[in-house]
């Protein structure tokens, strides 16, 4: 997961992102890849408590090359996409778990990344809110967003149209699911990681 997000470098092997070997990239270039091509959604949301929902969402733009103008507007649009227009001025401690995760998703989406990486996105949520988040993922996927989800939960994996099953660091199976047939050129991937 961290390697895919260009947060970490693989000790061995290589990781190609858009036909580019990431092991050859400098630290500055990696930061740019993280900023522009990858959106992160963490299990524990990782929102900055001193910032409002809007502030949290617009944060990646601060570090982007063309985020100088219209930052606020873009952040509003991202919050709209996740359905949180009425929580713009709220701080994270005034939001529910589901809302926090929606803010985190909006933050991940703001730079229009090619991949949305979600690490156990429902791990800290109850099943009802989890369902809401998964529905949001489905919606985003229908809009054409590539999403990779790492999860232990079977029902989360079911939402995807490709499951890669990992066991002890090896790929066991790589199967398309029949629940959702992709009409779009981009595909959504689900990565189910089983630790035993």
């Amino acid at each position: 997961m961290n390697v895919m997000g260009c947060l970490d470098k693989a000790t061995s092997g290589c990781y190609d992102l858009d036909d580019q070997d990431t092991t050859t990239l400098s630290e500055v270039e990696l930061a740019r890849v993280r900023n522009e091509r990858i959106g992160f959604v963490f299990q524990s949301f990782e929102l900055l408590s001193q910032l409002t929902a809007l502030g949290n969402v617009e944060m990646p733009l601060i570090y982007s090359r063309n985020g100088w103008f219209g930052r606020r507007k873009q952040a509003m649009q991202a919050l709209e996409r996740v359905g949180l227009t009425d929580r713009i001025k709220h701080k994270p401690n005034q939001l529910s778990g589901g809302e926090k995760q929606r803010v985190a998703i909006a933050r991940a989406l703001i730079c229009n990344p090619s991949i949305l990486l979600a690490d156990e996105p429902t791990g800290n949520l109850d099943s009802k809110t989890s369902e809401g988040i998964l529905e949001l993922f489905d919606l985003l996927h229908r809009e054409g967003q590539t999403i990779i989800v790492v999860t232990h939960e079977e029902y989360v994996a079911k939402h995807t149209n490709r499951i890669i099953h990992l066991e002890d660091g090896r790929i066991c199976s790589d199967l398309p699911t029949n629940s959702d047939t992709s009409e779009k050129s981009r595909s959504s991937g689900g990565l189910q990681e089983e630790m035993s």
Partner: peptide, 16 residues
Amino acid sequence: TREIGLRKAVGAKKSA
């Protein structure tokens, strides 16, 4: 520390 980690994860460079 976590904040710094997060900022880096969303694309903050060392210099930033």
